[in-house]
Design a protein around this nucleic acid. Structure first.
Lengths: 128, 128
DNA sequence: GGAGAAAACCTAATAACTTAGGTTATTGTG
DNA sequence: CACAATAACCTAAGTTATTAGGTTTTCTCC
C-alpha cells in the first residue's frame, strides 16, 4: 500500500488541486464537471477515499472541508519517470521530443532551463 | 475505449515489452516475477485482456504467442504529460529537475539533445 | 502411439475504482 | 421558529483490475 498509483479520476483530482491549490469539494466539482457531467456526491466520495488512502488531506474551514494534495506533482512525475524509464531523464526527453511537435520557442526555453540548472550545479563542485 | 489508460500491472507489462521487445508469456512472467511471486496464468490472463483492449497484439510463433506493445512508450509518455502538465514540456522538466538530483553529465547530455532538436528544426538559422 | 510438458483457453473470486442516491447535521433567512 | 440550502456521512450498485485454479490442446520424446 506504500505506493499504489492514483487511478484515472484520482489523478484528475490531484491535478486540479495542484493547479488550483487547496479546494473544497464544490470547487473541485466545478473544475471537473462544469456542466454537471459528474454528481457532486461522486466527487465528494472520491475525495473521501483519497483522504483515506493518504493521497490528499483535509482541513476544516468553518463547516466545509478544504482538501490539499499530499503528494507534489514533482514527486508524482518522478515516480512515473522511474516507472517508465527506469529514472532516465534523458530517455524521457528524447522520447517526448520524438512524439510531439515542440515549438522552437519551447525548445529555447528548455535550453535555458537546463543551462540554468547546470550553472546552479557547477560552482559548488569544489567542496568534496 | 479510445484512450483508457493502462493500469499498474498493465504499465508494468508494457514496460517489459518496450524494454525487451516482443516476448512470450513465459518471458514476461520471468521478468515480472523471477521468484514466482505471480502465477504464470496471471500474466497470461493479463496479456489476453490487454490484447482484447488493444494495448498489445500477438502473433503465433509455432505454438506460442509472441506479444508486442501496440502503443509506443513515446505515445504513452506523451499522454501522461498531457494529463499532468497540460502538455507543457517545460513545466515537466522544471518539475523533474526540482524533484531529483540530476548529475551534471546527464544535464550535459540533455543540453545536447535539445540543441540537436533545435538544429533539426531550423537548419537555416544560427544558434545564439 | 502414449506420456509428459508446455501452452492456450475458460472460468471465477476478490479487490479496487467509479458513480451516485439517500440521510443527517449545520447554518443562514424570513 | 421553520425552512431552504449546503455540507458531510452512509450505503450500494455497476464496472474494471488483479489474481489464479482447472481444462483442453499441442508438441516432443521414447
Amino acid at each position: 500500500m506504500t505506493d499504489r498509483n492514483p487511478s484515472g479520476r484520482e489523478l484528475e483530482i490531484l491535478k486540479i488541486l495542484w493547479d488550483a491549490g487547496p479546494s473544497t469539494v464544490r470547487q473541485v466539482h466545478e473544475q471537473m464537471a462544469p456542466d454537471g457531467e459528474l454528481a457532486f456526491n461522486t466527487v465528494q466520495t472520491l475525495l473521501r477515499i483519497m483522504d483515506d488512502k493518504g493521497l490528499v488531506e483535509h482541513q476544516r474551514e468553518g463547516r466545509t472541508f478544504v482538501y490539499s494534495p499530499r503528494r507534489t506533482r514533482e514527486n508524482e512525475t518522478s515516480r512515473l519517470v522511474d516507472k517508465m524509464f527506469d529514472g532516465s531523464l534523458d530517455q524521457l526527453v528524447v522520447s517526448l521530443l520524438s512524439s510531439r511537435n515542440v515549438s522552437d520557442a519551447e525548445l529555447k526555453k528548455l535550453e535555458q532551463i537546463i543551462s540554468a540548472a547546470r550553472k546552479r550545479k557547477e560552482p559548488s563542485r569544489k567542496g568534496k
